[in-house]
Design a protein around this nucleic acid. Sequence first.
DNA 1: CCGAGCTTGTTCACAAGTTCACAAAGTTGC
DNA 2: GCAACTTTGTGAACTTGTGAACAAGCTCGG
Lengths: 219, 219
Amino acid sequence: MSSPRRRVIPEATIARLPIYQRCLLELEAGGRTKASSEQLAELAGVNGAKVRKDLSYFGTYGTRGVGYDVPHLLHEIRRELGMTHDWPCVIVGAGNLGTALAKFGGFTDRGFSVVAIMDVDESKVGQKVGALTIRHEDDLADVVAELDISIGIITTTAGAAQDVADQMVEVGIRSILNFAPATLDVPFGVLVRDVDVAIELQILAFHEERRVLSEAEIV
Amino acid sequence: MSSPRRRVIPEATIARLPIYQRCLLELEAGGRTKASSEQLAELAGVNGAKVRKDLSYFGTYGTRGVGYDVPHLLHEIRRELGMTHDWPCVIVGAGNLGTALAKFGGFTDRGFSVVAIMDVDESKVGQKVGALTIRHEDDLADVVAELDISIGIITTTAGAAQDVADQMVEVGIRSILNFAPATLDVPFGVLVRDVDVAIELQILAFHEERRVLSEAEIV
DNA sequence: CCGAGCTTGTTCACAAGTTCACAAAGTTGC
DNA sequence: GCAACTTTGTGAACTTGTGAACAAGCTCGG
Ligand SMILES: NC(=O)c1ccc[n+]([C@@H]2O[C@H](COP(=O)([O-])OP(=O)(O)OC[C@H]3O[C@@H](n4cnc5c(N)ncnc54)[C@H](O)[C@@H]3O)[C@@H](O)[C@H]2O)c1
Ligand SMILES: NC(=O)c1ccc[n+]([C@@H]2O[C@H](COP(=O)([O-])OP(=O)(O)OC[C@H]3O[C@@H](n4cnc5c(N)ncnc54)[C@H](O)[C@@H]3O)[C@@H](O)[C@H]2O)c1
């Protein structure tokens, strides 16, 4: 089989694909069947050249003089992102945030479903969170095997996060979304993405602080 | 006054400062008073050169042959990040996520406090979320002025996010943390940071998908 | 069929960020 | 006081990402 040039896709491009997907969904909902790179760029908040370059990594899906075919491009992006099938996820840490995420239905449209939620707290095990029943953390291996889970979501306290990550890796999970404010140490081949709201706020505060300083300087 | 060289700080460096802060807090809690760039790097999950370069943008806080003085460095980072005073924040959108964030106490230690939560839904206005009472979105200008708010957090549905952002800008907010899956259009000078959990999951899925493909190829 | 008008795909130069490597500057033991 | 050792701070090479520019390619009207 002739190898279909599998180029290396820049991380920055990968991070933008879901945004393009979202914009294309909006266009599709609005009945649009064609869109130019500039229109897409406008919606995505980037510039046209970037859109064209990003999309060109995956093939030539546009038509010169016309633009991109919305449903077709959407299909291709979905395929690239692995959105053609469903991704079962497990949440570990059935606290404030874990239960909020579990109850949130918004990920289902994008191909993710929370199929299990676990905790160490015996008093929580057995309780219901939406349609799910909280199971004991010790059952992780069973749960992951039973439900064919490949993505783990950590919403425990920071202190427990590394332990939970170790257990996840142990049972074969190689993609982890971590909400705990902790730097996780995982073996090569395991991918961790951190979502840290406090850091985002601190970045805003840094700029806000500098803004105040610069303004004081001008005066 | 001799201008204390205010260099341009790379964005990537700014994003790491909160991580260093967190690591230093851990070291301090453990009673450590000195730490080398390598030790800090280990905790932060980066390499030593990066730590040294990042810190050097702010001044020379280390001692050659010894390392950095933990309390001193912590103080300097706090100052740079504007953590020496409190940042009052307003949450707009008192749904699942908005209330979870409002109730979460974990930001207070880092200098952020949610001082108001608002919604358009009349049935929610007046209800309590922890110690706060949900106020009507129309009062945003008053609330921001009264409580001297500089950071706005958007947790409405995606459709309402742009409207809310416009209102925030209108009343003088220039730092916005957006949880809605929408690209916000704001004037120059206003800083928006997006937290999009679905995108993070999609990035994990992309790599997971590729991993499966590569493995199939090897066989 | 042809030319005018668009829009893509790609190249290239530049900007941003990372890592290396090492002199400078400190400490410690003798 | 000096030699051996440690660790910082930084210039320089390298990698990654961005944006401008433009040739190639498509459509459409006549
Ligand atoms: N709640 C928020 O709005 C919010 C926002 C941003 C970040 N976070 C972070 O998310 C994490 C969870 O926050 P939360 O408010 O849900 O906290 P929480 O205390 O309500 O929940 C933590 C849960 O984790 C469980 N847990 C602890 N150790 C465990 C282990 N080893 N295995 C399995 N479960 C374990 C606890 O029993 C508890 O149910 C924290 O790290 C927090 O910093 C929360
Ligand atoms: N819940 C989660 O776990 C989660 C996770 C990731 C992202 N999100 C995103 O966060 C946002 C909120 O999610 P949610 O689950 O809390 O939704 P939700 O429907 O529970 O809450 C949305 C709230 O916003 C209010 N609202 C709508 N328009 C408004 C306006 N113009 N002004 C003020 N308030 C307005 C609604 O009345 C409602 O109370 C969504 O965009 C969602 O995609 C949620």
